[in-house]
Write a protein that binds this DNA or RNA. Structure first.
Lengths: 127, 127, 127, 127
DNA sequence: GTGGTCTAGACCACA
DNA sequence: GTGGTCTAGACCACC
């Protein structure tokens, strides 16, 4: 259970016009999905993350709580927060991300009256 | 230039947790993109739309303003608001919609460490 | 959609040793389950509830967000928060409450080596 | 007074999101109530339990203290900790567990406006 | 040390 | 007016 290196602001791409916690959730979920954060890894403590990312601790707490709901991370009282070792949960999350993304694409295609292939072709047109 | 029939609440699928004007913009842009709203068609007036959709007039105003910016609709003072007759603008909008949608999908694939084909396959897995 | 009368501190039984938001969630969920808060009813605004209950607005916000997750209440941007009109969601919540309660009882019975009937009998013994 | 075999992590079902000592108390109380831990049995020492359960010693200490209060276990300085031989105390504990469990169920029923029988029926509904 | 809750107060977008 | 986010700082229980 190696402790992760501290996060730096550069580790996240933040759009100040959107909720920070939402972007942290998305990007940490992606780190877990692509295996950059391995099962069992200890995440930075709330306070560490808050200070290294120059953000309020409650913002990190909300982030962690959102990731805990679907079981991607687990909190051990007094010990810290860890990436789940339940690889099934991680797999489910990956599939969900994939499905939602594809569903959004299909919805866009449908809404402008195209098939998925037509939409892909249109997106690749020059100009 | 036939006046469009009044909109009814059922004409839009609204999620109260997101900005209403944003959803109106998206859905009207799609109506134009798929040709359901033809070039030159007169849109309901702000007041008409607001009352038939049971929505605040400022919400419709903001919607129309957003659609005017890319030139999808045009307002003639005293006469009303119309779908543009500039079909090039409509074509650009369609391509933009397609490109943004595909770009989002590719970004998701990249973020979880998959190629686009792998992501499509993952999304179609059973279970 | 009648506005509910303001809540007073006496409307809730609060145990200061447990999270307030958790107790608000439980008790409001029960009010909805037993029909005291009818579908479509407008809840007090976050600020109103906070001031009448002498509690911080963020505490009420967390309460409402927890109730929104299972779809028991719905937030309309800029308009307020309402009990859902989706009676199916309310029914599901009722059954869930019942099932969890019974499951807890059965778990207790099992853990001390009794059947449910034996446990009920034991609880009713005099002394 | 046979010494109990050492506890292993598998002997307890732990939810990291709740206080560990609380869960140990509950589960040891249940072991005593159902006779799995017989009167007079010697419990593992604090250090033994802490190391075999991979838990902080203070967690076990708090656990034993909580079990001593109602007289379910007794500590003889220098000799160790034992399940009480006072079978009346064990009986009282069993009844208390049963009563509290039933009281909780009745409270739930009341809070959602049902009788106990209605609640049991609702919990057993299909779907 | 850890996370969890609550407060007070600011600022913003939306209707 | 509404809810939503973020900050700063306090206090607590648990390990």
């Amino acid at each position: 259970m190696p402790p992760i290196r501290l996060w730096k602001p550069e580790d996240f791409r933040l759009d100040p016009s959107r909720p920070l916690y939402e972007q942290f959730v998305e990007q940490i979920r992606a780190m877990i999905a692509r295996g950059e954060l391995e099962p069992g890894t200890r995440l930075p403590s709330v306070r560490e993350a808050a200070s290294s990312l120059r953000v309020n601790p409650t913002t990190i707490m909300k982030t962690y709580q959102e990731l805990e709901r679907p079981g991607l991370i687990v909190t051990y009282r007094g010990q810290g927060t860890f990436v789940t070792e339940d690889e099934a949960a991680i797999g489910i999350s990956r599939r969900e991300l994939a499905r939602e993304a594809v569903a959004r694409l299909e919805e866009t295609a449908r809404s402008i009256g195209l098939t998925l292939d037509q939409l892909l072709a249109l997106a690749r047109e020059k100009e």
